[in-house]
Design a protein around this nucleic acid. Structure first.
Length: 269
DNA sequence: AATCCTTGCAACCGCCTCCGC
DNA sequence: GGCGGAGGCGGTTGCAAGGAT
């Protein structure tokens, strides 16, 4: 049986989102939440597929997102988590509030990977590159690490060798050494992950907090009235929307979005 | 100044997992 | 237990911006 496409490709817009589309999506989710992504585009008046809407929201529009490059400390956590979890970006992202799996994945591929290679660390196995060639047994074990994205068991059997990358970063020239140590307790001498509080934290399942305002926000804000909210303090995520002020930096400053959502600008300016 | 190359990131695609029926 | 729909995830692509030549 053929798999049904997630959405009818005919009449579905693709490519970069416009400010107007963003505005519609934000308006809709504010008013209704996102109970059913497939229905969102239709109800929001968007010619997008639900998947695209979800992606846009989670990766870009969500009000709790941090913007900008990952800090050194965050980068360190990513390396740690990657050594233990492999390419499970969503799990890694879950431990970094305000960061998305896509963002972390991109940052890994564009920054961290190169950094590790430069340091002589295999970004896949987190082992020294030279050791990889000299020890086939170790390498094959490390492949489990790399392929462990589908296997929690494999992840738990991870070799302690995977700490090498973290250790190098910690012992290296990172200016965030002290701050990373607050996260990476156990440091370079951690030979047993079971005793590492970080590992416990890393492998912990995230209990759903249910506090996410955009999930719980089922109030009936009238979209048309929304733009009339003067100071923004009535918004569920008030205080977490600073990034919206940067919209003008994205070249969207002249859009109608500003009228409706740049509430903080009228507040702070 | 023009062209080419590299980099960074948003977005898409297809598969996987979960959950309700 | 099987099936199908929906959401989630990770890999990959395409393009714009910046840098190098």
């Amino acid at each position: 049986m053929g798999r049904q496409p997630c959405c009818d490709k005919l009449g579905v817009k693709r490519g970069p989102w416009t400010a107007e589309e963003d505005r519609k999506l934000i308006n809709f989710i504010l008013s209704n939440g996102h109970c059913c992504w497939r229905a969102v585009p239709k109800l929001a008046g968007l010619l997008r597929c639900g998947k695209s809407c979800r992606l846009r929201w989670t990766n870009y529009l969500r009000p709790d997102l941090k913007r900008g490059l990952l800090t050194d400390a965050e980068e360190q956590v990513v390396v740690d988590l990657h050594a233990k979890l492999g390419n499970r970006w969503s799990k890694i992202a879950a431990k970094l509030p305000g960061r998305t799996d896509n963002e972390i994945k991109n940052h890994w591929n564009t920054h961290i990977k190169k950094k590790l290679i430069k340091m002589g660390i295999d970004p896949v196995t987190h082992e020294p590159l030279d050791r990889k060639t000299s020890s086939p047994a170790t390498t094959s074990q490390s492949v489990v690490t790399a392929d462990s994205t589908k296997s929690d068991e494999a992840t738990k059997q991870q070799s302690p060798q995977s700490d090498v990358a973290r250790d190098v970063l910690l012992d290296g020239s990172s200016p965030m050494e002290s701050s990373t140590n607050t996260v990476s307790t156990g440091g370079s001498s951690s030979s047993s992950h079971d005793q590492d509080p970080l590992v416990k934290w890393l492998l912990e399942e995230d209990p759903p907090t249910g506090d996410e305002p955009w999930l719980n926000f089922t109030g009936s804000v009238d979209v048309d009235e929304f733009s009339s909210i003067a100071d923004g303090s009535e918004l569920p995520w008030y205080g977490a929307t600073d990034w919206l002020l940067d919209y003008q930096d994205f070249g969207l400053g002249d859009s109608s979005l500003v009228d409706g959502y740049m509430i903080n600008s009228s507040n702070g300016a």
